[in-house]
Design a binder for these strands. Structure first.
Lengths: 223, 223
DNA sequence: TAAATATGTTAGATGGCTCTAACATTTTAA
DNA sequence: TTAAAATGTTAGAGCCATCTAACATATTTA
């Protein structure tokens, strides 16, 4: 699996991708966040980050946060594009379940072939969101902007459409399945408990369901 | 891209696969053949071979040939199965050209997911040959036996069906395209030149074509 | 604000896969 | 049948991504 000149190693790609997604979620990315996400120790991240800084994929100063450069963002978006196209493909073409495709997509996202992904993109009709509802960047890294908020931020009485979930863990996705929640479903917030942050919602044709704060927080909705 | 316990690394997989295909072609496999095929130096192969011997994937004694064990063969067949399913998939489902799919399949063959390959297998209708005509081992490593000979061995006047090509280089595949040769075509040997081993063939609806020995040798036919 | 805690960095080691240089064995041919 | 050529092996090094142990800097809190 030889990569083209100038391409990062598989490991580098994973760092870049993780930095990107962490910065989307929290703005700033710290060495420890990365270590945590990638399940490696701090010094490992430290040296890798220095290396990526030399390659101009990110900017970084000791004891400060990590920021992707334009070059780094471009690479991250390319990997994310491949990941999400792969997920959608696995679900729509191969008929796999949306909660089981993540691990396979993690592997497919490193496949180095423009042709391969162009064809998949074409076959899927140039989609703009993956099966989790996450937006798919186009070939140039552009993301169709669609303002989203967390379900936990939605006011009582308001309705919105489930657009994405901010977690790929199987246990989480299984939980949503048991609750009968799907991307695209419209939900209405009936009550929000100040005490524990839990949210009670209704959906067309179903009775009330309660979601704990930790779950609601990870569900993204569009108004 | 974490592998399951007991699985070989990507590098190991490539060694096993190459040993298998070299042994199919020539019976015996030598350190130098492998070094050549994998484009690494002799000592590299030497140490890797020792390592694989410890893992009981092959048997080997210094200055002697290399032989896969049953365990090694099983792993090789699993990788080859994935490679060939991937090639066929790329051609039949994604509509890529049969001469361009090899590099992508080289990457896809390392994807670790039974589900993924089961689905592809199913979608393709449990095929027994890839777009080059090479047989696809089933889940248990079984290959549907179909005796083949090289076109260069076919006697004058005899006809046979092109079943496979023994070379994946782009220049070779392009050459076959220019000659108008396709897997599945029936050809008849009109003349064989003793001097240079070249073979002149005819095909239904086309005029005579001459193939050099080096080309005829790499085309496999079934009677 | 000084001590305790959390976070980040440096130094040095390891295992995987590769290399070059030097040496050993086997095969070929004069 | 021995010298030359081809092939294979060993020793020692380097790079990558990782680790642990020790040390440094920031942040929190008593």
């Amino acid at each position: 699996m030889k990569k083209f000149e100038g391409m990062g190693s598989l490991t580098e790609e994973n760092y870049i991708k993780s930095i990107y997604s962490l910065s989307q979620a929290t703005g700033e990315v710290y060495v420890s966040d990365l270590a945590n996400k990638l399940r490696v120790k701090l010094p490992t991240v430290n040296s890798m980050v220095k290396k990526l800084a030399v390659k101009k994929l990110l900017s970084y100063a000791p004891y400060k946060g990590i920021k992707l450069t334009e070059k780094g963002k471009k690479e991250a978006l390319s990997i994310i594009r491949k990941h999400r196209l792969a997920e959608l493909f696995l679900v729509q073409v191969l008929g796999l379940g949306w909660e089981e495709v993540h691990d396979i997509a993690e592997q497919l996202e490193h496949v180095n072939s423009e042709r391969f992904y162009d064809r998949i993109d074409q076959m899927l009709g140039y989609p703009t969101a993956d099966p989790h509802g996450e937006p798919i960047p186009d070939v140039n890294g552009k993301i169709s902007a669609n303002k989203r908020i967390s379900l936990s931020e939605l006011q009582e009485g308001k309705s919105a459409k489930i657009a994405a979930v901010g977690n790929d863990e199987k246990t989480f996705l299984d939980h949503l399945n048991t609750k009968g929640l799907q991307i695209g479903d419209s939900v209405t917030v009936k009550r929000k408990e100040a005490f524990d942050g839990s949210v009670t919602i209704t959906m067309k044709g179903k009775k009330e369901t309660m979601l704990s704060h930790i779950v609601a927080e990870r569900i993204w909705v569009e108004l």
